[in-house]
Amino acid sequence: MNEIKKPQVRFITIDSEDAGQRIDNFLLKTLKGVPKSMIYRLLRKGEIRVNKKRTKPEYKLVDEDVLRIAPIRVSEKTNEVSTSLNVVANLEGQILYEDEILIVINKPSGMAVHGGSGLSFGVIEALRALRPEARMLELVHRLDRDTSGCLVVAKKRSALRNLHEQLRNKKVQKFYHALVKGRWSPKLTRVTESLKKNDLKSGERVVVVDNINGKESETRYKVIQHYSNATLVRAFPVTGRTHQIRVHCQVKGHPIACDPKYGNEDFDGDMKGIGVKRLFLHAASIEFTHPRTEQKLKIEAPLDKTLAKALKQLTVANNG
């Protein structure tokens, strides 16, 4: 059964963190579980007021605005993310760094960054369940569902804005580790093929190399270790296109191990034989300037035990 929350009047005083936002966007994030249509109806009827006056959805909040929100009767869904779920509880142990404005988590492979497309929840919903006291938790960037590693979440809007600006200005450095097919040449340090997204009739999205109509893309590579039939490489995406590292590896004849979209069946079979059951692409580290202290911050995420164990089973080859 659905429990009914006892409605009550709420007053919220806007601070510098929330100033500058449209009121409808602010309310969508603040009034969790309230449908968008209801928020617009409440604004239209004057049941949500700013400084005792009616307001429109596009109004931009100002520091020290006082919002009065009339009692809202909302049924609390029984399918909310539970902190007792193993996948949610385990996330607590994956937090690599946390302070008053940021969380950096070692995202597990197979977990989407947010719910949707048939998924009841993702990392961000799980974190909100683990940190119910946090007024705001928003993704700073994204990782593919199958990719593991460093994922940054902002607790303050000022931190989100600052980090988005650093991303736009290419001040954030993200380094990935990938196990690829064959012997990657140490001389192959840059891949610059342009990439284009294609949506198939099935609804699946694939990315293809298209140097005429595609978007300019660049990934820089460095060999970490050669093995008898594979290479562990470090990848640094200069641009941030969808599936960029995966397609750039594939186009050079070195698809990533166990890539369901761009992989090599024979190589994947060999890798599954040593325990690799997932895409071997891991966001190993991220570097950026801390928005508040302005100190350089480098966070590293260890490989999960399965991938680390698989590497030990490979035969090391000369890197020369």
Rank of each mutant, 00 (worst) to 15 (best):
E3T: 11
V9S: 02
R22M: 09
R22W: 12
F26L: 05
G33R: 02
V34M: 04
I39Y: 03
Y40H: 15
L42C: 11
L43S: 05
R49N: 03
K60T: 07
V66A: 04
R73W: 00
E80R: 14
V87A: 11
V87R: 10
E92Q: 14
G93M: 07
Q94D: 13
I95M: 09
E100A: 10
N106S: 13
K107Q: 09
M111D: 08
H114K: 06
G118P: 04
G118R: 04
V123N: 10
I124F: 11
A126Q: 09
R131F: 15
E138V: 13
S148G: 15
G149H: 03
K156H: 01
K156P: 06
K156E: 02
A159M: 00
A159F: 12
E165D: 15
Q166N: 11
Q173K: 14
Q173A: 14
A178L: 12
A178N: 06
W184K: 00
P186W: 01
K187S: 15
R190T: 13
E193W: 02
N198P: 00
D199I: 14
L200Q: 12
I212D: 13
G214P: 10
Q225A: 00
A230N: 10
R234M: 15
P237K: 03
V238L: 05
I245L: 14
Q250L: 04
G253Q: 01
I256A: 05
D259A: 11
K261S: 05
Y262E: 03
D266E: 11
F267W: 06
D270T: 08
I274F: 08
I274V: 14
I274M: 07
L279E: 02
L281C: 03
S285N: 15
S285Q: 09
F288T: 03
T293N: 06
T293G: 04
D304P: 15
K309D: 12
L311R: 10
